[in-house]
Design a protein around this nucleic acid. Structure first.
Length: 260
DNA sequence: CGTGTTGTTCAGTT
DNA sequence: TAACTGAACAACAC
């Protein structure tokens, strides 16, 4: 379930191998994950082009070339790999960019993500739709601005890609636990101190998770609760509970994150 | 073969 | 009219 930290790890993986690689051809065993063009047109547009440095905004990845940009989204189950020409492809490698020294492969088990071809920044904006600033770039002041005037709950706002890009279910739960805020708290009811803690928690969760390549599953993290039958809060020792917020499975500590 | 999974989209509501 | 909510959808593992 890639969120911002996972996609940043993907970006670094691609950045380590792909820049400078000329594309020879593109094969797509599952053509339908190529979303806004045909496999043939994608191959024609990229053949002979050279990959540059990849960028990321939220959960979107942009594999630049000296021509068009390949836009990647990983849905819930996707990930990219770099592999030698001869190494066996995985069953769910849906699109393969065959380069000079290896292959960039997009594994999409559930086909929820996809590949788009973009000629310029305008194309990219049309593909991604409106996105708020990347969650990693949000300052304390900007967080206040982004949340100002919102009527709903804090978890809903954090997960809204138009508010900020990159946070989804697990990062939202983890951030709210670190900030000691109940996921159902109304944005309008949060104090300046609440927002201070929320910003510090978002920063902490994103930076530590990026360093780890994903949200750590260790006992000191709320996400650990998703691994075990019944987790206890690493801060207070109380039981972590599971419920549904915005029709998504949500974990929190009732003692540390009091209900609104 | 039914259930669980979760990012996104969309229909409907406030 | 923007913001909000919840249901539907995607495809597969188990």
């Amino acid at each position: 379930m890639p969120e911002l930290p996972d996609v940043e790890a993907f970006r670094r993986r691609i950045a380590a191998h792909v820049p400078g690689q000329p594309v020879q051809r593109v094969t797509a065993p599952d053509a339908d994950v190529v979303r806004n063009t045909s496999v043939q047109a994608l191959g024609r547009a990229l053949a002979g082009r050279t990959f540059g440095h990849p960028d990321r905004h939220g959960k979107w990845l942009f594999a630049r070339t000296d021509g068009p940009t390949v836009v990647l989204h990983f849905g819930m189950t996707g990930y990219p790999t770099w592999a030698g020409h001869g190494s066996p492809r995985h069953r769910y490698d849906r699109v393969v960019f065959v380069c000079r020294d290896g292959e960039l492969r997009l594994n999409l088990m559930r086909k929820l993500g996809g590949v788009w071809l973009a000629g310029d920044e305008e194309d990219i904006a049309a593909i991604t739709g409106p996105l708020g600033p990347d969650a990693r770039e949000v300052s304390r002041g900007r967080l206040g601005e982004l949340l100002a005037g919102r009527r709903g709950g804090i978890k809903s706002a954090l997960m809204n890609q138009k508010v900020m890009a990159g946070v989804r279910n697990e990062v939202a739960d983890e951030t709210l636990w670190h900030a000691r805020l109940h996921p159902g708290r109304k944005v309008a009811d949060l104090t300046g101190e609440d927002l201070d803690r929320l910003h510090a928690a978002l920063d902490h969760v994103l930076e530590r998770s990026i360093a780890h390549g994903r949200i750590p599953r260790d006992p000191g993290w709320l996400t650990h609760a998703r691994e075990v039958e019944q987790a206890t809060c690493a801060r207070c020792g109380g039981d972590i509970v599971k419920g549904t917020v915005n029709s998504r499975p949500t974990y929190w500590c009732p003692a540390c994150q009091p209900a609104p």
